[in-house]
Design a protein around this nucleic acid. Structure first.
Lengths: 341, 341
DNA sequence: ATGAAAGCGCTAACAG
DNA sequence: CTGTTAGCGCTTTCAT
C-alpha cells in the first residue's frame, strides 16, 4: 500500500530499528551476515528511505560559508542576493556569506585562513588561481572543513568539487555563435577579459580561440583586453580599439564590466555594420542591451542552480554521502533577445 | 538559537498546539482575537513552518495522472521515462502515466472522461486544441480534479495552469538564430511542422514568422510542411522541397520527426552551402546531428523541469496552497554543439 | 472554540 | 554487535 518503512524492513530481516539505521547510514558495528539480511529485506520490499523524516530526526545544522569577490560585479552581487534570500529556505543548514577583494590572491588566502574550523563545516569559494590560495585551501581541508570552488575553479588543489560551468565549453559556445553571426563578413574580433589570473576567464578565452581559429578562419583575433571587470576601464580601452580598427566584426566579452562594453558601443556607433556582440552573464544591463539590440547573445550560468548545487554537494560531503562526479557541472545557458526569462 | 517551532509560538500566544495548527492551515474554528494573538506571536518569533515535518505528519498521497501522446516522438518518450524514474522520488505523491494517440482529439477527450475522480486528485495533459477536449476537461474540473496542460496549452479552457515554454517566444528565438546564421545569404527558409492542430506548433510558427519578416527581410519563407511528427513523412517531403529549390538557406523544424530532417539533409547533401538548421528538442538524434555539424542549434525545453513544475503546481492546487501566476513558465534553452549538457 | 495525546519515519543516546 | 526508548516539528483524532 504505502511505502515501506524501516519498521517493515526490521520485521522482515528480524532485527531492530537501530540495526537498520546502522546499515542505512553505513555506521560500523553490524555483522556481515546481518547486514546482508537487511539489504536483502530492503531490496525485497523496495524500501526507499524518507529523507524528510531523517532530517527531522537528525536536527543538525550544517554551517556553510560562501566566499565571494567584492566589487560592483553584477553577477556576483546577484549571487550574493540569492544566497541571502534563500538562506532561510534551506532547512537544517545555516549559510553565511563573506566578501573578499577581487583578483587579490593574498586577501583570499587570508580569508581562507581566517575561517574558524569549529564554527564552519563547509566552504564554497570563488577561487583566484595562485599558489598561496592553494596552500590556504589545503590547510582548511586539513582542519576538517569541506571545500568546493564556485564559478572559477582551482585545479590541482585540494578542493573537493568544482561547481560551475565548463568554461572552455562556454568559450567554444561563444565562438560558435559569434563565428556564425559574422559569417561572410571577414574582419577582426576583439576579446574583452577581466584578468587571466582567474581561471574561468583564461579558460573561456582558450575555448573561444580554439573554435574561432578552427572553424571561422576569416576572422582575425586581436590581442585580448584586460579590463579587470571594471566598466570604466573596459569602456575606455574598448573605445580605443574600436576607433583604431575600422573592421571590427565581433566582440566577445568574457568577464564582467559588461556595462563598459555597452558604453563604448554607444559612443562609437557607426552608421552601418554594428559588430556582433556576445557577452557573459545575464544582468539587468546585459538584458537591456539585448533588448535594445546592441548585444546579440548572452552566455549565462544560473546563480540559483549554482548555489543549490554548492549547498547540496557540501551537505553530502559533510554527512559522508556519496556525490556524483559531475554533480557540480552547471549547464551553459544561451540567451537571445527572444528567450529572455 | 535554533528555529522557533509551533511549541514556542503556542507558549508565547498562550494557546495549545492544535490552535496554532488551525491558524497555520487556515482551518475554521478559531476566534478572531485568538487568531490575532497567534499571528502576532509568529511575527515576533520569526516563525517559519517546517514543511518536512508537516508532510511527515500529514502522510497523504496526492494521486496524479499524466496523459502523454503515444508514438515514437523522442521528446515525449523521454518525458515519460523521466516521469517513471522520478515517480519514486516524490514523497507524498503517487504518479501514474497513460498514453493517448497523438493528434487525436476524440481519443484525448475520451481519455479525459475515463479519469476516475475518486482515484485521481490531479491531471497533467499534453493538450490537442479542440472543442471536444475543452468540454471533457471542463467535466473533469467539475468532478473536482485539478488540471494543468503540459507542453502544449489549451487556452480559454478550464485548465488551471499551463506548464511549458512560451512557444511564441521559442519561435522568435529560432528566427533570431536562423536569421543571423543566414545573414548575407539571401534565399528561402523552410518550416517543418508536425500539425497545426496542436497549439505549440502553431505558436512557434507564428513567432518565427514575426521575427523573420520584421528583421531578416532578405529571407523568403516557403509554405510550411506538415510532417505529423513522423520522420518518414518529414524526410520525403523535405527532400522534395530541397530538390526543387536550389537556394534554401535555412530550415526550421518546430515539431518532432527531426530524424527525418537529418535524413533528408544527408541524402540531399550538396557540395557547398549547407542550409543552416534549427530544430526543437534535444534528443539523442538531434544531439548527434549537432555534433556532426548537420544541425546548427536546438531549441529545448527541459523535461525534468517541466514535470517538476507540473507536480508542484498540482500539489499546491490540490492542497489549496497559493501558486505564483508564472509558476508554469519553463525557460527556453538554446543548445549549440559546444554547450551540450 | 480549544486542548490532550498519539503518531508520521527516522535518529541518537544509552543499555545490554 | 544489537536492542530500547525518547524525541524531531507537525497533524489529527477525539474530548471537552
Amino acid at each position: 500500500m504505502s511505502r515501506p518503512t524501516i519498521h517493515d524492513v526490521a520485521r522482515l530481516a528480524g532485527v531492530s530499528l537501530s540495526t537498520i539505521d546502522r546499515v542505512l547510514n553505513g555506521r560500523r558495528g553490524v555483522r556481515q551476515a546481518t547486514q546482508a539480511r537487511v539489504f536483502e529485506a530492503m531490496r525485497e520490499l523496495g524500501f526507499q528511505r524518507n529523507a524528510a523524516a531523517a532530517n527531522l530526526a537528525r536536527r543538525r545544522q550544517d554551517r556553510l560559508l560562501f566566499l565571494l569577490p567584492a566589487g560592483s560585479n553584477s553577477f556576483m552581487r546577484g549571487l550574493e542576493r540569492e544566497l541571502v534570500e534563500r538562506a532561510e529556505a534551506w532547512e537544517f543548514t545555516a549559510i553565511a556569506t563573506r566578501t573578499v577583494p577581487a583578483f587579490d590572491d593574498a586577501a583570499l588566502a587570508q580569508a581562507l585562513r581566517a575561517v574558524d574550523p569549529d564554527a564552519t563545516d563547509g566552504v564554497a569559494v570563488v577561487a583566484t588561481d595562485s599558489a598561496v590560495v592553494r596552500a590556504a585551501l589545503a590547510e582548511l581541508r586539513d582542519r576538517g572543513v569541506a571545500v568546493v570552488t564556485l564559478v572559477s575553479d582551482l585545479p590541482s588543489s585540494r578542493r573537493q568539487y568544482f561547481v560551475g560551468i565548463d568554461n572552455v565549453q562556454a568559450g567554444r559556445t561563444a565562438a560558435s555563435l559569434l563565428g556564425r553571426f559574422c559569417r561572410g563578413r571577414p574582419g577582426k574580433i576583439v576579446i574583452v577579459a577581466g584578468s587571466m589570473l582567474v581561471r574561468d576567464h583564461a579558460e573561456r578565452r582558450l575555448g573561444f580561440e580554439q573554435v574561432l581559429r578552427a572553424e571561422f578562419g576569416d576572422q582575425q583575433i586581436l590581442p585580448a583586453l584586460e579590463g579587470l571587470d571594471d566598466q570604466d576601464i573596459v569602456a575606455t580601452e574598448l573605445k580605443r580599439v574600436l576607433d583604431r580598427h575600422g573592421d571590427i566584426t565581433g566582440i566577445y566579452s568574457l568577464g564582467a564590466g559588461t556595462r563598459g562594453v555597452a558604453r563604448a558601443l554607444a559612443q562609437h556607433r557607426q552608421p552601418q555594420a554594428r559588430p556582433s556582440v556576445v557577452v557573459h552573464e545575464l544582468t539587468p544591463h546585459s538584458r537591456q542591451a539585448l533588448l535594445d539590440g546592441s548585444f546579440d547573445a548572452v552566455i549565462h550560468q544560473d546563480p540559483v542552480r549554482e548555489i543549490s548545487a554548492a549547498v547540496e554537494i557540501l551537505q553530502s560531503l559533510i554527512r559522508g554521502r556519496a556525490v556524483a562526479p559531475d554533480a557540480g557541472r552547471i549547464g551553459i545557458e544561451v540567451f537571445l533577445r527572444d528567450n529572455l526569462p
